[in-house]
């Protein structure tokens, strides 16, 4: 029992170690100790989704989760999605559909859409709206985000068929 400890976990596929305080959130740790910018705190209440990361494959709000509990887990941020200049199909779809303006909420949306498509590879409109209602875009690129989800679903289907 203590106010700080060393955690070992996997971050975007690589082993990582961090000395963290018990009151440190995941987004604070990623920003301050790993210089990652993709997950960012905005509403601070888990409502906007800007800080979305996955822990063992499950999306969580990085601003409402303590880094303490990451020990032994695998964390993925938007930074993991593109490799060697090749984007994830969801990222490609966001560009092609023009699904963002200022871009601040975009990594969070992309992380959620990936989980959405994992759970529902061919979601209907109602499923998409409900699934993404915990992500806020004040530029309101919502119509284009709907387009991007459809496009990404098609891209993933093509990729898995190939």
């Amino acid at each position: 029992m203590s106010t700080s400890r060393t955690i070992q976990f996997t971050l975007n596929g690589r082993p990582a170690t961090a000395d963290i305080a018990a009151n440190e959130t995941i987004v604070d740790m990623l920003t301050n100790r790993f210089e990652l910018r993709g997950a960012r705190e905005s509403c601070g209440q888990g409502l906007c989704g800007c800080c979305t990361v996955t822990v063992d494959g499950m999306a969580v709000s990085g601003c409402l989760s303590l880094a303490w509990f990451l020990d032994g887990k695998s964390v993925e941020t938007v930074e993991a999605l593109s490799k060697g200049g090749v984007l994830d199909p969801v990222q490609e779809a966001f560009i092609e559909a023009g699904a963002f303006q200022c871009g601040f909420c975009t990594p969070g949306f992309i992380m959620m859409v990936r989980q959405l498509l994992d759970a529902h590879p061919d979601p209907d409109e109602d499923e998409v709206r409900h699934y993404l209602t915990g992500n806020l875009c004040r530029c309101s690129a919502y119509p284009e985000i709907m387009d991007a989800v459809k496009l990404a679903a098609a891209k993933r289907k093509r990729a898995s068929a190939a």
Binding site: R37, G38, S82, F100, P107
Partner: peptide
Amino acid sequence: AREKVTGRIEYTHH
């Protein structure tokens, strides 16, 4: 666009 979807774009926030 690419910097925005990869989360690497620069904001004063960071």
